[in-house]
Design a binder for these strands. Sequence first.
DNA 1: CGTACGATCTGCT
DNA 2: GCAGATCGTACGA
Length: 207
Amino acid sequence: MKKFDYPVNHHRQKLSRDYYLSGDTLHLAKNLLGKILFTSKNGDTTGVIITETEAYLGIEDRASHAYNNRRTQRTETMYMQGGTVYVYLCYGIHSLFNIVTGPKNIPHAILIRGGYPYHNKNLILSRRNSSKYHKNLLNGPGKLTSALAITLEDDKTDLITGSIWIEDQGIEISPEDIKITPRIGVDYAGKDALLPYRFVVEEHLFH
DNA sequence: CGTACGATCTGCT
DNA sequence: GCAGATCGTACGA
């Protein structure tokens, strides 16, 4: 069993506006693997290592909410500047957490689909109604938001100034440890359903 | 207005 | 492995 070697000296480095403004959403989706996603709720801060992402490439991507330049009350968030949080309700139950990327009016987003406990593990466990870590604890976008107490009210939060943010704490994921697959649950997207826009850290790195 | 359905999870079999 | 939960959103009448 291989255990990931965390950096000893935490050099807390919150990701900047410029990071999210990059127009290369596929690169960002890969680069976000290993970064730490934090939320602060009622004075409690929790953080998870991002281990799974999916890219949604705006108006030309049939799987994207913003396909064909669709602008509605819900999708308006996707047209905000990079570094904005996009949360929407899925299946009537789950709040899914996305990061808007690129400049204003380019509605790209990255769905965060999985993580590994990093900070305040006890609160993460209790929010997930679990007594100990197991491999299915945070392996899904709804589980992740549950663990971090992210709700629809967090939609439009700014990752630079708000109570949700992402840090680089020096965890590097090498390309050979990233599995690339089609996205999950987008069968309706026709040929775009097969695009290799899902990025998953090999499971053996964390447990 | 009415209705169909979803970037899912859980519990039960 | 599968059904049921559960409600906001999108879109058409």
